[in-house]
Amino acid sequence: MKQNKVAREQQIAVFGESGSGKTVLLSSFYGLALEQELAGTERFDLLAVDSAQGRRLHQNYLGMKKSASLPMGDRFSSTSYAFTIKRKPGAAANAKKNLKEELRLVWHDYPGEWFQQDPSVPEEAVRRLETFRGLLGSDVAMVLVDGQKLLDHAGEEERYLKSLLTNINTQLLRLRDDLLVNDERLVRFPRIWLMALSKADLLPETDVTMFRDLLVEKVGKELNNLQDVIGSFVETPEALSVGEDFVLLSSAKFEPEKIEVSKRVGLDLILPIAAMLPISRYLPWAQTMKKSADVAKHLMGAVAPSSSLLASAKVASIIGRLPNPIATVAATVGPFLAKSAFDLAGSRVEELHAQASEKHDFLTETLTGFQMELNRGDDEKVLLRGRV
């Protein structure tokens, strides 16, 4: 039997209304990765697990780049895309072999039409439910706010924003009773809900702080409602972050008869957000967990594959042996791990990155590289991370 080489799989669920740019975003992300224009691809290859899916995304990207043609959206189509991130062939021939040195990203695309329209037939309602069940393994959910619609509603942005968040709330509530068997809340559920401004190139004067302030000013109440609705799905809702993280995204610069795919915003942050943001939240949450051993076990287990980055092999082995009730042990191990996570800033992460590069430690080099991208996103006011 072929051994599984996946050291860490991260899933991200992307929500946005029809026309918000999900297909363009994903196509640009993959096309730039193939052309080694995405941050980190000088060290690793990012490839679609399903070659047919990858070819369609690449075709979309080339259509934008060479013909200024936008990809056709697949109405009501729900698709998950899996990508592997692995060391380039032949790179560092003397590197230590690691049976689990491959990373994987699974990108769930939830149809925007499902937030805006009722099911037309019972079969469609079932499909919506099954699609949502498929993305429950995601740690991060990204809600796209359409920059074009903000422009269209300039001066009265709350009209669009309230509609967007209300539609998401309504759809979640419709799914809730069918997802929660015997009203038992879920341990596995997206616990980090990040707000993303898509088509950010249309609002060049808007930095991420201004985007955050716009949402809080115009729809602060609706964001609180969204947090309450999402909290009603999960066991231990205090281990939840909704509307505390913000990012600007632009797939390209769009002009009449010209699409400049090299002029993007935020696409280099998608992998780092998916891989690293949960680490900064899950460790402190698990550390303070007092009641739910299942949730603490899930949180610690989600970051255990990356523990060599945060601490040491000894600590990684401790995590692997965590007994029940896990909360007690997590409270013992947690402070050290949490401190290590917060140390991944500035010169410290750069030092770890340089050391990993010298040792040809692919996983640590890649993950510290992701952390450096997040820090750079903060500095450039493209990313705004909430505090734990």
Rank of each mutant, 00 (worst) to 15 (best):
P119C: 11
L150F: 03
H360Q: 09
H298E: 12
S78N: 04
H298P: 00
R387F: 13
L62Q: 14
G369V: 01
R348C: 01
L299D: 03
I270V: 14
P237V: 05
F115T: 11
A68F: 08
L269V: 07
F342Q: 12
K96W: 01
K199N: 06
I168S: 02
V121D: 08
Q371P: 01
G40R: 03
F15N: 05
Q11N: 14
D118H: 11
R376V: 10
L99S: 15
K381Q: 13
H298F: 11
S163F: 03
A82L: 06
S312V: 01
G40N: 04
E113N: 10
R159N: 12
G63Q: 10
T170A: 09
L337A: 04
K253R: 15
W114N: 10
K199D: 01
F211D: 05
P204C: 01
V208M: 07
A331D: 10
D45T: 08
K263Y: 09
L179K: 01
D213P: 06
Y30N: 08
W285K: 15
H353Y: 10
S163Y: 07
S80Y: 12
R387L: 14
N167P: 03
A354S: 13
T131V: 01
K97T: 07
F115C: 12
G134W: 08
Q10F: 03
S307P: 00
Q116T: 15
W114L: 03
L172R: 01
K100C: 14
D245V: 00
A125N: 06
S340N: 13
K263H: 14
R104F: 02
S251D: 01
E42I: 06
L367N: 02
R127V: 11
